[in-house]
Design a protein around this nucleic acid. Sequence first.
DNA 1: GTCTATACCGAGATAGAC
DNA 2: GTCTATCTCGGTATAGAC
Lengths: 219, 219
Amino acid sequence: MAPSTRARILDAALELIQQVGFTGTTVTAIEEKSGLSPGSGSFYRHFRSKEDVFRAAIERELERAQQYRREFERGTVEDPQAALARRLLQQLDYMAKIRPLINLLAREHGQFPDLTSRIGGILLDQGIVEEAGHLTHDLRAHVDHADPHALLTVVVSALTGYHLARQFFGHPPAEVTPERFAATLAALITSPTTGPAPCIRCDQAAASAPRTADPHGTE
Amino acid sequence: MAPSTRARILDAALELIQQVGFTGTTVTAIEEKSGLSPGSGSFYRHFRSKEDVFRAAIERELERAQQYRREFERGTVEDPQAALARRLLQQLDYMAKIRPLINLLAREHGQFPDLTSRIGGILLDQGIVEEAGHLTHDLRAHVDHADPHALLTVVVSALTGYHLARQFFGHPPAEVTPERFAATLAALITSPTTGPAPCIRCDQAAASAPRTADPHGTE
DNA sequence: GTCTATACCGAGATAGAC
DNA sequence: GTCTATCTCGGTATAGAC
């Protein structure tokens, strides 16, 4: 069946907002891309305002993101290093699928704080971090680390940074392919940690009183 | 000495563009923030157009970024793990200093492709990757890895992802402090790599013919 | 080099015919 | 539910006095 006008408007709006941002997107351009007559207010028979369609498009993407998660392949890990690399590649695939959300986050965060925290909650909490939890659970027998929480953060950060660098520049950093990236990261994780515990006051202290103060002046 | 009007305009424009983007920034708002009368065209005595001031602000930030690099602390590494963690924290500081450039990249990439590649070249090639080269050089005696090129990419990606996540959400992912993050990443790097070489065809093949095709459909 | 005033256009949104 | 036509506002940019 052909997509409804409403759906076509959502598609057009999402694409335009990723390309030129919220303020850069005009209702006229959305109409034109949706097959409506540009300049006519036909758009307004389907959405009350530009912000309205913006929020609706994000909600639809959030729904899709959660659907993608449900389809995630899970299973036990036999060979830790190879299986881990495969999981990491799966994470990169997931980020590619939710690319619109990540783009919107990179572009319009700070414009719509409520949406930022919503996206952040679903992507990080229900998304990446949850999956990272699966990773540690599966690998607990193989990987022992002094600060698993921080280890997950490093893994998630590496995946995020790699994805975004590809996104920004159009090619992977240093031309390292995803397979090579995942294999390297997997090898790092599965190698035994040497030396003393990497952090002194880590887990309990940080977990109990996380957000007080801001010693590094980020906010 | 008091900053010149031109400098105040550059400051105002840079800040506004980071907050609301290029299209979201109005010349009137720039004038108001610079202490000029809003709505008057006084702005145009200093810059020919909005795009003009945008490009000038980026050029100024690129100059600053290269200045920051020259002030970088260098030295030999005795205790690999602790010294490495310190270097990684230094990298995070650097990213904080060039935050405006990273923000603009995240926000306006795709709008001005020439600036994107310029920023990318200076940040990645002359910047992060160069420093990562120092890292491996310093640590060559301590760290042995099957694919050092990919290892650097993982490190750079992790730093980038951590920085951006803090930037987007206003707090570090999983509330892991920079010190804890750097210590964990340093411990990962300095631990010996186990198992087989993490990638089969890596170094030579990828280095000789890097950009042909695009097996993962990024571009 | 900054101001007032203004020309010009494009964008968001509405009215009403079909 | 889409169109033509239009209102209004705000943004870019210029002209000319001081």
